[in-house]
């Protein structure tokens, strides 16, 4: 309902690992495929074979560049879908009750039968996680694959979101943040999982794992120098060293 539940039994969501995402868009298209065929209206495409094709997608991958004076520039691929906020502004603004956050697992959904397509929830979402389908006139958003994660017609291992199942790099993780022992809770704790735009107090459930430190060899004085202490500067010396080394070699002790 447009009133948010006080708390939900589970807090299902995703962890997205920005240190591992290679920006392949696999999650984007598998999401498109699953959600076109499943929950609600198909995700339509306008001008699919023409100028400015525009389709509805529930998950999109941005590419950013991070620069800092004196440091090597970095590229970060950045997937983004609904974060299933605990404090979801998109839900409270909805005039029809079509948008709601599920009591049992915290998934934020749109009941397409009630949606009038006013677009207000998309305005209220800071993250651009909602898209009004241009053919169907209803609001579309990530369903956290609610029709997969409990689906008894799917084998147990496949009861996971389409994007998570498909991610070749394993950069996406699905689980229950209410359970401190879950994979997602642990990853968040270990790797410092972060919120997007925390200043807006939306309390996103999905967490992002920051990229690990990179390019340390560009600037640090190498602590590895001892590994390269020369055994010889030129050929004869080197071959002499080789001889000594080889005579030290135990041969092959296991030889029989």
């Amino acid at each position: 309902m447009t009133t948010l539940p006080q708390s939900t039994e589970k807090k299902l969501g995703l962890v997205i690992d920005l240190d591992t995402c290679v920006g392949c868009h696999a999650c984007v298209i598998s999401c498109k495929g699953w959600n076109t065929e499943n929950y609600g209206a198909p995700l339509s495409d306008q001008n699919p074979y023409g100028d400015e094709p525009m389709g509805t997608f529930l998950n999109r991958v941005h590419s950013y560049e991070v620069t800092s004076p004196g440091e090597t520039a970095k590229t970060v691929h950045f997937p983004k879908s609904c974060l299933h906020c605990e404090n979801a502004p998109c839900v409270t603004v909805c005039p029809t009750g079509a948008s709601y956050k599920r009591q049992e697992d915290g998934i934020v959904l749109v009941n397409e039968k009630d949606c009038i397509g006013c677009g207000l929830c998309a305005w209220a979402c800071p993250y651009g996680a909602r898209e009004l389908d241009q053919a169907e006139g209803v609001m579309k958003k990530c369903t956290l694959c609610v029709d997969r994660i409990y689906n008894e017609n799917l084998p147990e291992v496949d009861r996971t979101p389409a994007c998570v199942r498909t991610c070749p790099a394993g950069a996406r993780h699905f689980g229950d943040f209410a359970d401190p022992e879950s994979n997602v809770s642990k990853l968040t704790a270990e790797r410092g999982g972060m919120d997007l735009m925390p200043e807006l107090n939306t309390a996103p459930v999905n967490k992002y794992l920051p990229p690990r430190p990179k390019d340390t060899w560009d600037f640090e004085e190498s602590v590895l120098a001892p590994f390269l202490a020369p055994v010889a500067e030129e050929t004869t010396g080197f071959l002499g060293w080789l001889d000594k080394q080889l005579s030290k070699l135990p041969g092959d002790k296991e030889t029989n």
């Binding site: 970095k74 950045f78 997007l196």
Partner: peptide, 12 residues
């Protein structure tokens, strides 16, 4: 803040 990458530098 939108990407959480601010502590690494300027994001573009």
């Amino acid at each position: 803040t939108a990407t959480g990458l601010g502590n690494l530098g300027t994001v573009r």
